[in-house]
Amino acid sequence: MTTSTEASVAAHVQAAIAAYAHALDADRVDDLVELFWPDGAAEITGVGTFEGHEAIRAGYAGFSPTRPQLHLVGNTVITSATEDEATAVSNLAFFQRDDSGWAVRLVGRYDDVLRRRDGEWRFQRRVTTFLP
């Protein structure tokens, strides 16, 4: 893979990860679902695995924010990449605001597989694991 291809893959992976966090925090479930391939899966450890658009939509509909929230995702490392598939791992900190201000509620990690089809990058599988 050329340096420019590696940079392009990295940019698309980062864009999908950021779009997911923004859609989740803004309660835009339809936008979140569209970040997955129709045969994609979202697994939230301890909660369940949602396979396919309808299951992902139903699963995430149950997570509507009750207060302002913010998912900060960082330290993303692309662990493997080709022109059509990439795997990545990222750290996650979930903040929520209440009457006393913003506070970290959860920390965890995302393990992702993204695929490119017809020039478009989307999640094939996203595993969310929360740390104790």
Rank of each mutant, 00 (worst) to 15 (best):
L106S: 09
L35H: 08
A41L: 02
A86G: 08
L32Y: 06
L70M: 12
Y20H: 13
A15V: 01
R126A: 02
T87M: 05
A55L: 09
T79N: 04
L92I: 14
L131P: 00
S64D: 00
A10I: 02
S100T: 15
V127H: 14
R126N: 07
T3V: 13
V33N: 08
D98F: 06
T5W: 00
E83F: 00
W121R: 09
A21Y: 01
T128F: 04
G52A: 06
L92Q: 04
S64R: 14
Q124C: 05
G119P: 09
V113H: 06
E34Q: 15
Y110E: 05
T128C: 08
A15R: 14
L32N: 04
L72Q: 12
V33I: 07
E54S: 14
V9L: 04
D25V: 07
A61D: 08
S80E: 15
A81S: 10
A10D: 10
V47W: 12
R28W: 00
A15G: 08
A16G: 10
A81N: 01
H53N: 08
T3R: 08
V107W: 00
A86Q: 05
T2H: 14
D30V: 05
S64I: 07
G62Q: 12
R105C: 03
T2A: 06
W121T: 10
E51W: 02
E43A: 06
N75Y: 01
D98V: 05
D25W: 05
L92F: 12
V13Q: 09
G59Q: 11
N75G: 13
I78C: 04
S90H: 07
R125M: 01
G62V: 05
A19Q: 14
R97N: 09
R28E: 15
P38I: 15
D25R: 04
S64W: 02
T128Y: 02
A55W: 03
V9K: 01
G119H: 01
L70Y: 04
E85Q: 13
A81M: 13
E85T: 09
L70V: 06
R67N: 09
R97H: 10
V29Y: 04
P38V: 11
A16M: 10
A61Y: 00
L32E: 11
V33P: 02
V9Y: 02
D30G: 01
